[in-house]
Design a protein around this nucleic acid. Structure first.
Lengths: 339, 339
DNA sequence: TTGTACGCGTTATCAT
DNA sequence: ATGATAACGCGTACAA
């Protein structure tokens, strides 16, 4: 049999209401009975049942992390897992449990969200925002569900944590220009993703600030064949390109390196800079210059923000923007000169 | 106001008991009222409250994935996240939610486990078994908590999903021997981890099967300084070593490559084989020969097994062992000969 | 075929 | 300071 509050009450010779008060730190209990109950609770290792507590309080003590893609693809890479890591860490430290919400099949996002919401399984939500439309988000606000966006949504103003794409792109393009590259192309993520647009803009602006008029860019989704197609056509239509800015990490880099090698294009004579840093980049030859995103920290910040929303303490600001750092390595000219 | 079963009942002009029966597919309801209720439910998008349902049924519809290390370290690598990915995928498809249980601070594992259990927040548990002792596991069995171990526990027989360390190690060592290496050393994970022992045994057995008597091995934990120390002492005490078997992935490879380069040891004249495969290994020069572990699949299998335990349908076998595959690349001799 | 009443374990309110 | 009692929302025997 499972231990219940009734049994504790019986053993302590009090009513269950008294036990509840002690457990929740309410005042108006004599020290003697408080200690008697506390001792019993500790001794029997009693913990109030989560479901019953949730029902009574209308709070589950659970945070949901909604990842917009199915687990098989999203949780295999570095991006979402690093954010999840930070989220999990801080949630655990704050005494919350973390539910990983991953659509059962690619595209079932809305359904998964609705399912969770209507059953009120979670107290709040952290949402990978890239695929949720304006209407869904509006409904969340309307229904007063506390939530935080991970990655800003351009046409929906809400509490969110973002990594500074503009600052990162500027950092990288300036660096590439400073290294002497003059015809810097850009391979970007899907055109409808907000950060693709931001990075494209920043890329163009920074180039023109550096008095470089040469420009070439292409979009691609995350499938290898798409990356290959986009990059090949970019290379062919711009044979004079002398450097490439990869505006996304993960498979972008792997496929790009394969293609560059196939075509006999040598780094760092041809420059390469990537948005997203991994430890292994240091071991490639040449090592790859990259923008390091504070993904773990973004996850942490998102939880912090969300908890404030749940507790209705107004956060300091609606938007937390985290800066990136440049990790300068050989693929982008630096070492060439020394040699 | 939140929609409740009472409101549905009222609107449908029936008692809530009837609504409940319809919702749960019980029979003994006339088609007309069933359809009337169903229509209403669909129309208003009603979903029964999760907490209330959990309280009544004594089932939460939630599975827990207990990772033995704090999120900051464990969820940053590839190992746990890949398993988590498979777990999340299959859980979602089976209609379960997945709770990521990660100790708030390194070492708080027992506390976290107890917390979850006593409150009965989950219907079942998938446990990264390496750090849980026999007593804790026994208690789980005693309390009839359905759980599955990810990674077999040598001194505790229970339902578990494991990746075949012995088969993988044998595969690799045979390959290295076939490539002509004669003095193959081994750098293993922490000595108290079960799979370290398994891999060490398999390493020695395979060598002796191949009539190779030369042997050298060292253990290390996952911190860079420890890896460095172990490897350096291994190299120094065995200057004639001509190949190395890295029995763990992740940072092991990164640190090892750094050290080998520092010391001017060239691959593949010196052979290198790693237990754990990553896409980027293909891009290193030379590319790294590796054992590929079916981590995602292990996560999936664990859920499948767990669901059977929860439904009390006896699984076919207590132990699911998944085979590895060898990914042969340049770091281990293959290409040398061709050149 | 449908409705009633109670239990699930906890918390909160209102008496005492 | 403590104790009854009524929610919380749902499932389910059992009665009608």
């Amino acid at each position: 049999m499972k231990l219940t509050i009734n049994q504790i009450a019986e053993l302590a010779q009090v009513s269950k209401g008294t036990v509840s008060k002690v457990l929740n730190g309410h005042r108006g209990i004599s020290d003697s009975t408080r200690e008697r109950i506390l001792k019993l609770v500790k001794q029997l290792d009693y913990h109030p049942d989560a479901s019953a507590r949730a029902l009574a309080l209308q709070k589950t003590g659970v945070l949901g992390f909604l990842i917009p893609h199915e687990a098989a693809t999203s949780l295999t890479g570095n991006y979402w897992t690093s954010m999840l890591s930070g989220t999990s860490q801080r949630a655990a430290q704050a005494g919350y449990n973390l539910l990983v919400l991953t659509p059962p099949h690619e595209g079932d996002l809305q359904g998964a969200l609705n399912h969770i919401l209507k059953r009120s399984t979670v107290d709040g939500l952290i949402i990978g925002s890239e695929l949720l439309d304006r209407d869904s988000l509006s409904e969340l606000v309307l229904r007063k569900v506390p939530f935080v966006l991970l990655g800003r949504n351009p046409d929906f103003d809400h509490f969110s944590v973002d990594i500074d794409s503009v600052q990162g792109t500027t950092l990288m393009i300036r660096h590439m220009a400073a290294q002497g590259y003059r015809k810097i192309g850009a391979l970007l993520g899907p055109a409808h993703y907000p950060y693709s647009r931001e990075r494209l803009d920043a890329y163009q602006r920074t180039l023109s600030e550096a008095q470089l008029t040469w420009t070439a860019s292409a979009h691609s989704d995350y499938r290898s064949d798409s990356i290959r197609r986009s990059l090949l056509s970019l290379l062919e239509s711009h044979p004079d390109m002398d450097a490439l800015f990869l505006a996304s990490g993960g498979d972008f880099l792997l496929d790009t390196l394969r293609i560059l090698r196939e075509r006999g294009i040598e780094l760092p004579r041809f420059g390469l800079g990537v948005f997203d840093d991994y430890p292994f980049m240091e071991l490639l030859s040449p090592a790859i210059t990259a923008i390091r995103q504070p993904l773990f920290e973004a996850g942490e910040e998102a939880v912090t923000l969300l908890l404030q929303l749940i507790q209705k303490t107004l956060p300091a600001s609606r938007l937390v923007t985290l800066p990136t750092t440049l990790v300068s390595r050989e693929s982008c000219g630096e070492v060439t000169r020394e040699r």
